[in-house]
Design a protein around this nucleic acid. Structure first.
Length: 642
RNA sequence: GCUGACGUAGCUCAAUUGGCAGAGCAGCUGAUUUGUAAUCAGCAGGUUGUGAGUUCGAUUCUCACCGUCAGCUCCA
């Protein structure tokens, strides 16, 4: 007999092979009606699965987040059902639930069009209305091969299954699929769904295999949830940094240099302000350096890039040797090692932190380029720390504070991930023990929650990654702290210790923004273009009400500029309404209106971004005081992250 | 790189089955002098991404190239 323990501590004893639904029925009729699936020992099973093991038993209803994945997975089957009806020659690949919905991959002779999507969606509605039960069957290998005899993709998958794995199929009406489950009881459960887009996807993610056609879709239990999701997609489009980059006149791309941004005067102010912010914070404890952009292959052979990374490097033709034997740097590390190694270092200098904003080039695949987030030319706020092993603990804490402080300055939250030793690695186990312990104890000292990603470290050392979430909840991997034991070996780096003998330092790679370009993209989307005053390319726009007040307004603007405020005069002969609208559209934090009354009183009527008609008449000097204060303290002010 | 979609004025978009390429905004000129999210009028703006091909005729059809976008395992 199997013993099942319910969440309230009650138990049920049932013979093996009992269907999950029969157990649910013993708990309550209404619960059975509301149930979607069950969870036994953390494994989700559908109601029609025969139970094999006892343990913790939980019933999943719409309220449980796990049930949404079940619904979506069933949605994928319903999609495939519809596709097979309209395109009987389609072979079926994989169709899993994913974070925001589900997809299904098909192998078809002619790719899908947007019209096809509409037809599939309409057909899905029919399948839903026909209310086919999802019928689970467990079959042996021979039977499985027979059932999918005409589908080479499924046959390949069956062949890959281990000998001891249970092979199960799910049928909903006319459609049968090889599937582990679980599923909702019948197709009518899928009420609120939408097919989103199609894309090519390699069979099993392998670029050497054939390309399948993937259909992405999403589904929810409630109509409001679907609408919220679709609204969020729209909102993301509205905040898209590529769109805002154009409308706010920050940057552009041009076919003469794909993957490399042209920064406008406004964008450059922001880029430089961001750089200056990092530089300010690094002034005390870091040493900024600059190293060449172009190197011959000697360096890359020593670093190992020539063998492993050459595909991604921009190689330069050498006229004398007639060879492609030099390259623009794709990373800063090797050049920093060269500079470090060029002279003798004492233990007294350590930890030595080299930082740089040098430009890097990586020859990304054309299809991988995307706005500022995936580019070929960018700058990292890169740092390489040379230190003694005994300093790791303290150093990691120092770097973590630095990184988290950076995000906090923009109101960004970071998720921390700790990645430990991978299967393939260098160094001794003792060394890994020490390194992992140092990283983890530093992590614990911050008191912040973190996720352990066992086995996800670099081959040369463990690391801490920082995933930043923007205001739309999207995650971006930005910062990283990586311990590196390999580089010092490869570059024969040394320091002279207290004992007057040479030792090997350890290297820590640190990045905060990931790349300044990507960080700019995140800031643009996070603030939806409404930047905090200190970062805004234009901080104050001064508007004279009529032409004759232009000289007064000019003087006001000049006074602000003299105080270090980025203030501009807008004395165009358009109406005040027009100019105010323009200022709001450009998301200028403050507009200072100068009319007759203000001109006489030495005041300005201040309109704050997003505050509408609400205005405040203040003394010019007091306003300058306030704004310079906001700039100095880098206040988030009227910036609108949410 | 691969699959698909797309590329028309600075921007956002139109243009019947192939038949003289258009609008709004932005720009320029003039009038208006404005009190908190678009004043009015006029003007100018294009080798329809590039190059071939089919055709009497191509923004439209074909091919190649360039670029942009959605994606390219979160594994039945």
């Amino acid at each position: 007999m199997l013993v099942l323990t319910l969440p309230d501590g009650a138990t049920r004893e049932v013979p093996p092979g009992t269907l999950a639904r029969d157990v649910v029925a013993t708990i309550g009729e209404r619960l059975l009606k509301a149930s979607i699936a069950v969870m036994v020992n953390g494994e989700t099973l559908d109601l029609n699965t025969p139970l094999r093991k006892g343990g913790a038993f939980r019933v999943l209803t719409e309220k449980d987040p796990e049930s949404l994945a079940v619904l979506r997975h069933s949605g994928a089957h319903i999609l495939a059902t519809a596709v097979r009806r309209l395109r009987p020659d389609a072979h079926i690949g994989f169709g899993p639930a994913i974070d925001d919905g589900f997809y299904y991959d098909f192998e078809v002779k002619t790719p899908f069009t947007p019209d096809d999507l509409e037809a599939f969606e309409a057909e899905m509605k029919k399948v839903v209305a026909e209310k086919y039960p999802f019928v689970r069957e467990e079959v042996d290998r021979t039977e499985a091969n027979k059932r999918f005899a005409d589908d080479p993709l499924k046959l390949e998958r069956i062949a890959d299954l281990g000998a001891d794995e249970v092979i199960s199929t799910y049928t909903d009406g006319p459609f049968i699929d090889l599937c582990r489950g679980p599923h909702v009881p019948d197709t009518s459960y899928l009420k609120h769904f939408k097919l989103l887009h199609t894309a090519g996807a390699y069979w099993r993610g392998d670029e050497r295999r054939q390309m399948l056609q993937r259909i992405y879709a999403t589904a929810f239990w409630k109509k409001e949830d679907l609408e919220t999701h679709l609204f969020r997609i729209e909102e993301a489009k509205r905040r898209d940094h590529r769109v805002l980059g154009k409308s706010l006149d920050l940057f552009m791309f041009h076919q003469v240099s794909p993957g490399a941004a042209f920064w406008t005067e406004r964008g450059t102010i922001m880029y430089n302000t961001l750089t200056e912010f990092v530089r300010d914070r690094q002034r005390e404890a870091f040493q900024e350096i600059k190293t060449p952009l172009l190197y011959n292959k000697m360096l890359w052979e020593q670093s190992g890039h020539w063998g492993k990374y050459r595909e991604n490097m921009f190689l330069i033709h050498n006229k004398e040797t007639e060879e492609l034997d030099s390259s623009l740097k794709p990373m800063n590390c090797p050049s920093h090692y060269v500079l470090y190694g060029a002279k003798k270092h004492s233990y007294r200098e350590l930890p030595l932190r080299y930082v740089t904003f040098d430009v890097l080039h990586r020859n990304e695949l054309t299809g991988a380029l995307s706005g500022l987030t995936r580019v070929r030319q960018f700058a990292q706020d890169d740092c390489h720390v040379f230190l003694m092993e005994s300093q790791i603990d303290q150093e990691v804490q120092f770097l973590m504070d630095f990184i988290l402080g950076h995000y906090a300055a923009f109101g960004l939250e970071a998720k921390i991930k700790f990645a430990t030793r991978p299967e393939v690695r260098i160094g001794t186990d003792e060394m890994w023990d020490r390194a992992e312990h140092a990283l983890e104890s530093a992590l614990k000292a911050t008191g912040k929650p973190y996720e352990l990603k066992a086995g996800d470290g670099a081959f040369y050392g463990p690391k801490i990654d920082f995933d930043v979430q923007d205001s739309l909840g999207r995650a971006w991997q930005l910062g990283t702290i990586q311990l590196d034991y390999a580089a010092p070996e490869r570059f024969d780096l040394e320091y002279v210790g207290e004992d007057n003998t040479t030792h090997r330092p350890v290297v820590i790679h640190r990045a905060v923004s990931g790349s300044l370009e990507r960080f700019m993209a995140i800031l643009i989307e996070h603030f939806a273009g409404a930047f905090p005053v200190w970062l805004a390319p234009e901080q104050v726009r001064v508007l004279p009400i009529s032409d004759d007040l232009a000289p007064v307004a000019q003087a006001v603007a000049d006074r602000m500029r003299a105080a270090g405020i980025r203030a501009h005069l807008d004395a165009r002969s358009d109406t005040l309404n027009y100019r105010i609208r323009d200022g709001e559209m450009m998301k200028v934090p403050y507009m200072a209106v100068v009319g007759k009354r203000e001109a006489e009183a030495g005041t300005i009527a201040v309109r704050e971004r997003g505050q509408g008609k609400k205005q405040e008449v203040v003394d010019v000097g007091a306003f300058i005081e306030r704004v310079t204060g906001e700039i100095r303290s880098r206040s988030l002010g009227s910036a609108t992250p949410a």
